[in-house]
Every structure is written in structure tokens, then in C-alpha cells.
Design a binder for these strands. Structure first.
Lengths: 120, 120
DNA sequence: ATCGGTGCAAATCCTTTGCATTTCC
DNA sequence: GGAAATGCAAAGGATTTGCACCGAT
């Protein structure tokens, strides 16, 4: 059976408190302030577990970044500053759940551009 | 000025001839049959150049996989077999080019599920 | 007391990079 | 001839893993 630990609690609590889609490294640094001995391995193991359970989603790669908001939404990635913004667009619901290829269980939408702070 | 080399030609020619969204490693192995001395470094450098020029797109990560079809389309990723299928859905055109956050230059849509071959 | 979780370090995977050599214009 | 590209090998970043110890149930 899966156990509850202070490490898991700290990671999930931190993720639920931010809207910045932090990387494993950022999560590591943040959680380390509360739990000074937590390791990278533990961070990665916890993130993988939470992802599998569907409690968080991965919203970017290289490095992976995480989001505790699992409601259907897209992400705007600023190509200048790297920030990731949530996009709740009504058209997202039009994504077909059944395609000719197979049944869609979940999806990811990334919009790439420049955010307002970075011009245009 | 950028030069034309047999390595670049071979990579682009290979990518245009397949619909499988190969990884750098697969491209490396395939192109190596024609050019036995080509290296990983060269493959990665060429792929990055083609990507910057917009002649190919990257359609997955870890490892990166590539597609010489740059028309707007989504990708269905089978979570069982790992295959990536092109999805030309008409609703894709509804993706907003302007959002409150910024101007969208391009986008990526990933649909995750099981393909027909893998059941359901 | 058990056995799942953690911490640490080493290992692995993918990708990039430095540099000497080759090759295209 | 000279700049750009290649090949090779080494380095780099992100993530995973093996194992001894710790701690939740």
C-alpha cells in the first residue's frame, strides 16, 4: 500500500500553491527549504507517482515542468522568457475524444509565441 | 553562407520519405547506411538547422522525434506501442492566433490514447 | 516487524560542444 | 583559400536506478 510521507505532502502542497509550472529542480530547491535533506531522486520519484495517479500533469519537457491544475487547458509558452501561461480556451472542448486512430484519453496543447511582457 | 552537403541532403531526403516520425537515433541508423561515417553530432546539428529554418518540426521529446510535414496538424501518440500518428482535424484551425497572453506563432497538439492496433 | 520510501551516489539516456580535419563555394 | 560543415570523443543536463538505511502502518 502506498504510504503518506512528509516529502510527498511537501511536494504536492508546493505545487498546489504556485501557478508557475516549476521544473523538478525548482521544486527541489523550494521543498528543500522545508526539508533540507530531500534528494533529487525522491523529488523525481514523487513527481512520477503523482503524474501516474493523475494528480499533476507534465506541461513541458527539457526540463519537465509540472502543474497541479489538472483541468483541461492549454499552455502558452513564451519563446523569449520561457514562462508558461495557462490558457482556458472554450474551443479546447472541441478536441475529438474519438479519432480514426484510437480513443483519446488525454491531450496537451502548446501555443508558442511571445507574451505581452516580451513585446507585441 | 549555408552550404549544401550530402549529409544534409540525406537527412532531409530520408525524413521526407517516411511517415513514422523517427528519432535522431533512427535517422542516424538509416542515414548511416548511405553515409557510413556520419556522426551523431552531425545528425543533431542538421536537425537543429532544419528545425530553425522551419523545414521540419519536432513532434515529441525524450527522445525528440521529427516530421518533415510542416502543415498544421495534431499528433496522436499511442501510449502502448509508442507510435505517433498524424491527425488532420478540421477543428485545429479554431486554435486562436491571438490570445490575451500574446500572439501565437505556432502550436503543438498531442492526443494521447491507445491506437486501434493496441486495442479498443 | 514489515516493507514501502528516502538519501546518496553512480549510472544512463539524450543532446550538445570543442577541436582538428575535411569539403564546399 | 577560406569559411562552414563534419567526425570524433568528451562533456553536459536531466532523469533514473541500486542499495543501505529509515520510518509509516
Amino acid at each position: 500500500m502506498e504510504r503518506s510521507t512528509i516529502q510527498k505532502q511537501a511536494v504536492l502542497e508546493y505545487l498546489k500553491g504556485v501557478k508557475t509550472h516549476p521544473s523538478a529542480e525548482i521544486i527541489f530547491s523550494a521543498v528543500r527549504k522545508k526539508l533540507p535533506t530531500i534528494s533529487h531522486g525522491t523529488i523525481y520519484r514523487i513527481l512520477n507517482t503523482l503524474k501516474q495517479k493523475g494528480e499533476i500533469i507534465e506541461v513541458a519537457k527539457e526540463p519537465a515542468r509540472f502543474d497541479a491544475d489538472t483541468s483541461p487547458h492549454a499552455h502558452f509558452v513564451c519563446q523569449d522568457c520561457g514562462k508558461i501561461y495557462d490558457v482556458f480556451d472554450k474551443n479546447i472542448s472541441l478536441i475529438n475524444k474519438k479519432t480514426k486512430i484510437g480513443k483519446v484519453q488525454n491531450f496537451q496543447i502548446y501555443l508558442y509565441g511571445q507574451c505581452r511582457k516580451c513585446g507585441n
